[in-house]
Nucleic acid binder design. Structure first.
Lengths: 260, 260
DNA sequence: CAGTGGTCTAGACCACATT
DNA sequence: ATGTGGTCTAGACCACTGT
């Protein structure tokens, strides 16, 4: 059962725990420890390397911080297996999808052969904060409808999203209802006479907050992608801002643009 | 000098180290511990909370994993200050910049009032691997010119990049030279008769490898953005693939696209 | 029950930075 | 020389998972 591992070199200038981490990392990268496999137990590593428990724990800690392994209490430490990656193309909001009565997430997820699900829907009516007001070209304090929700694919959370829509646009539509109807929010915005013309997306990445880690069921040492999208209608009016936080390992975003 | 911190609650179901981490995190988020400030020393925390050294170290370890603090050996542990963010718009490769004789990075960085610099330039000629061959519509093993380099702004590394150009395009140009001349690689590709028409960028994020951490001078617990760009000419031929790894905290990518 | 990882203690010596 | 964090040891008890 035990792998054939090298020992540590007490003359090496790297401390033992780093050497142990490097040895384990190498086993993982080379595939000798495959995704989903269990690492040798702490006691096995202690015996093999001839070090104290804290030393092997520190080595494993390093791999956890890199998101390479995930410990399961009472069972062992396992090589993280990559979840299926969702590839998001920049035409994912094309009207042809909306016309089929599907929201972007629903269409994408079904296309990937997974079961889409939305939960934790919360709708409030709030005064706009400074950043949102700027993006929507409103004045701070103007009323906006705030819709937040969590998206799941095959029961696993992959993304949390919060949309901000000026009340002047949402008024009299089901945007503030739990079920926004076919085509989602964008469908209702177009019903209200705002033909969507342009999106601007701002993408970055960071470590999640503890809340985000919990909501997305992330292990330690796994980053999130933040994407803020602003939707503009044909008159150039900003009609929605959508803030999303995605598990980075689950997404590749694809953008196609002319050289001009 | 010491902050006014709450104590830990032995009846709380969270372990002491998490409570300590939460207290410190709160101090940082609220600004009572500002960016650049030093946390109380380990010995101060040990005394204040009445715990063993490993316990406070574990608390600080948690904050390191979140990228909130950065330890400096012999000095203390400091609240990380955010570096200036570079905002990359999708028109950054517009010909008007190239016509001014500037490569995209040079133009961006100067526009941000920082001193651009490029080092660790390495040019090789290799057979294409499977992934690159697919992206360039070549056959695996076809010769390609591989240019890798590191970009710095005001002396701080911000990005490492590797370009892959089919030898059939690079041949007879300075693309394989250390200095590619005005307008960079894209300038030379256009000189060779390939008018750039379209780019496709694929964006994701992950934790850096140890090598990347060193090259970008990243602290533990800070992710990178990976961006793979493929450039196409007017005939639809893929003329270059560029793989970049960026310090996530230093970039916001901006894309503007029609709703179609 | 035995085996696993999670947390904690109380010490030790080392390396780095500052005075 | 002093104070800081970095690494390590050798134990302890707890909580979770499996047989």
């Amino acid at each position: 059962m035990m792998l054939d591992l090298d020992g540590i070199d007490r003359t090496d200038d790297r401390p033992p725990y780093r050497q142990i981490a490097a040895i384990l990392r190498q086993q993982i990268k080379s595939g000798r420890l495959a995704a989903g496999e269990k690492l040798p137990s702490e006691s096995a590593l202690i015996e093999h390397f001839g070090v104290a428990r804290m030393t092997v724990r520190q080595a494993v800690q390093e791999l956890r911080g890199e998101g390479l392994v995930i410990p399961e209490h009472g069972k062992g430490v396992f090589v993280r297996s990559a979840p299926p990656v969702r590839r998001l193309a920049s035409d994912r909001f094309a009207r042809r999808h909306r016309d089929a009565g599907k929201s972007a997430f629903l269409a994408e997820t079904e296309a990937a052969g997974q079961k889409p699900q939305v939960d934790r829907i919360r709708v409030t009516n709030e005064p706009a904060g400074a950043d949102i007001a700027r993006r929507l070209r409103l004045t701070e304090g103007d009323r906006i409808v705030v819709r937040s929700r969590r998206y799941l694919a095959d029961g696993r959370p992959v993304e949390i999203a919060t949309s901000f829509i000026p009340e002047s646009i949402a008024k009299g539509t089901p945007i503030a209802a739990t079920d926004t109807g076919p085509g989602g929010i964008y469908g209702r915005i177009e019903d209200a006479g705002h033909t969507l013309a342009r999106f601007v997306e701002e993408v970055s990445a960071r470590m999640p907050t503890p809340d985000e880690r919990k909501a997305l069921d992330l292990g330690a040492g796994t980053p999130v992608i933040t994407l803020t999208r602003t939707a503009f209608d044909a008159e150039g009016t900003a009609v929605e801002v959508c803030d999303t936080v995605k598990a980075a390992s689950a997404f590749v975003l694809e953008y196609d643009f002319p050289a001009r």
